[in-house]
Nucleic acid binder design. Sequence first.
DNA 1: GTCTATAACTCGATAGAC
DNA 2: GTCTATCGAGTTATAGAC
Lengths: 219, 219
Amino acid sequence: MKTRAQHRATTAPSSAGDSAGNSPGAPAEAPGTRERIVRAASALMQRQGYDATAIKQISQEADATLGSVYHFFPGGKQELAVAAVHRGDEEFSGILREILDAEPDPVAALTALTDSLAEGLRDSDWADGCPVTATALGTAGRLPDIQRAAAAAFDRWQGLVREKLTASGVPGDEAADLACTVISTLEGAELAAQVTRDDRPLRLAGTHLARLVSLSLDR
Amino acid sequence: MKTRAQHRATTAPSSAGDSAGNSPGAPAEAPGTRERIVRAASALMQRQGYDATAIKQISQEADATLGSVYHFFPGGKQELAVAAVHRGDEEFSGILREILDAEPDPVAALTALTDSLAEGLRDSDWADGCPVTATALGTAGRLPDIQRAAAAAFDRWQGLVREKLTASGVPGDEAADLACTVISTLEGAELAAQVTRDDRPLRLAGTHLARLVSLSLDR
DNA sequence: GTCTATAACTCGATAGAC
DNA sequence: GTCTATCGAGTTATAGAC
């Protein structure tokens, strides 16, 4: 199974309207400056949150200068954070789609999902949680642009789970409701695992979510 | 039902080893300086997180001077954050205990709990989420003291739910596992509700958690 | 597009009078 | 215990050469 870091490394560089990116077709080309900046911003804000991440640190991690950052993101730190949240959205959506597609049984897919999240957390020594939570939480009531981007991400992840459930025979309304709780529980369990430095919340979330979805399946 | 702000205002001032607090017995006495500082720190970090909250802002909100803050917390911002997390722990434990004790049926108690959390979020215009999440998340891998305090809080909340479940007839191991997922889901649903500015995640978490607990009860 | 220099500001923390 | 003044470091953001 692919870890999250591996997934980030293998994500196509031109997937987010990259104006200075590489032309499509050439395999494994080096990413452009803008792409490196977005990646660094997303990774750092995922671990430290919005306020603890300095633009200077982002530029260093991305091997770019401060001037380049403000060239690509004239809106400053806020605009950069919105791009980072969008990147996190795509990253997590990729993992979600990948695992949901690989496992036909929705119940087994849920436990595979929690296993994958637990693996990513352990591999990063409990540093890399959800790619958007840390950024969104500290800015929720303060910076509406970032809050909106995070809300859109949550909606998209919910939609992916809902599609899987309806495709498995769960009626429309119930699938949407269940998908919402699945995302909530995944978020909360990953948060709890990160704070307690123990994958137990994620493991239990997997078994309990499986039990819950089975109820809507067997009828 | 009491809202969270009301709960904070009516919490006894001398509940956390308050060395400069009021003597017990006198009703509704004005809180001391140290108490006001802890309250302000807890409230501000709950909304903004650790890094976005300046000590100067805390001192202003608490009607204290910067010198007073460093007098009571010579360990600086970090020590202050640990005290704020402890206060958030006690605050949330109080709400938990109150609702769990008032409702004998554990299934009904869970929906009452999500209703209460939704009410607190709506009343604060989606600003006041979990009292420790925002503080813990941004500092998890960086400041071990704060991370430990947050982990202890999660454990305590889990213990309260577990006691309620075992008292209702759920076998020991299963009660502990269920309690873990209950806390995870509550945390995640509150987070999702805050980010999306919609209480739907909390409402659905209530009905789905009720369904899940019923499974372990009817046998 | 990339780089350096710096302006303007805020941060945590300390010193010392009272 | 409370207050004011301040230090040094770090912050976002901008200006302008190349």
